[in-house]
Design a protein around this nucleic acid. Structure first.
Lengths: 113, 113
DNA sequence: TCAATATACTGTACGGCACACACTATTGTC
DNA sequence: GACAATAGTGTGTGCCGTACAGTATATTGA
């Protein structure tokens, strides 16, 4: 069915919402620059387009969860991002939320009605 | 911090997106009426307001994933929902998507960087 | 008997994020 | 020199969970 693919894509997109915040916060315990995050997340099974990541990084910084710092020593200037203490607090709470949700989903899909 | 709670609520809401579709599809292998779904999902750890569920049921029906049927025998008319074959197909694919995503999130949160 | 709550549902508007598009600039590779 | 990769900024849109407004009847408790 022609609409099959489109519907799955749309639903997959909805599932992704929120998880990217968790993904990024989990990777920024240590400072990392944008493009390295793209690679790092790809390696961990979370593909993300730079066009999606950079706006997300800026939003998380504006929300006080990340802090950034330019490094211009190398051949290319890079913006490094690191979790703030507030970001770590939020990350831990969000991880709890995710674990509860994932547990419930696990249960739901195990026993169909 | 005052914005803490609001931010968590907002992020939790984003995590929920998409998962409610999966939840409902997992519960409608057998016909169920709206309000019973509210109870059923609550029992499984997925609290959902009727104001959220009823619009979702109608949307899933309009997308061809569910089919409904009025039952007016009892003291109260009830609208029963059941997955269509297409809905079952989409449910299985979405479950795969979820499992992949959950696996990646598991990995991400296990080894912090 | 009446008020409040629960049950069961319809209709509709809004906020926010992942995505997508447009763009700049430099480095690295062939 | 052309093209892809690297590294980033700016901005608008679609869609879903939520919330608000509403109807109607059954059940419960005073």
């Amino acid at each position: 069915m022609g609409t099959d693919k489109g519907l799955i894509d749309s639903l997959r997109l909805e599932l992704r919402r929120g998880t990217l915040v968790l993904s990024v916060l989990s990777r920024t315990d240590e400072p990392k620059y944008g493009y390295a995050l793209v690679q790092s997340l790809l390696d961990m099974g979370v593909p993300i387009d730079p066009n999606t990541l950079y706006p997300l990084l800026r939003r998380l910084e504006s929300q006080g969860l990340l802090i950034s710092e330019w490094e211009t020593d190398g051949p290319k200037p890079r913006k490094y991002y690191r979790r703030t203490p507030f970001g770590t607090e939020i990350y831990r709470e969000l991880r709890n939320e995710w674990n509860q949700m994932a547990g419930a989903m696990e249960l739901l899909m195990k026993e169909e009605s």
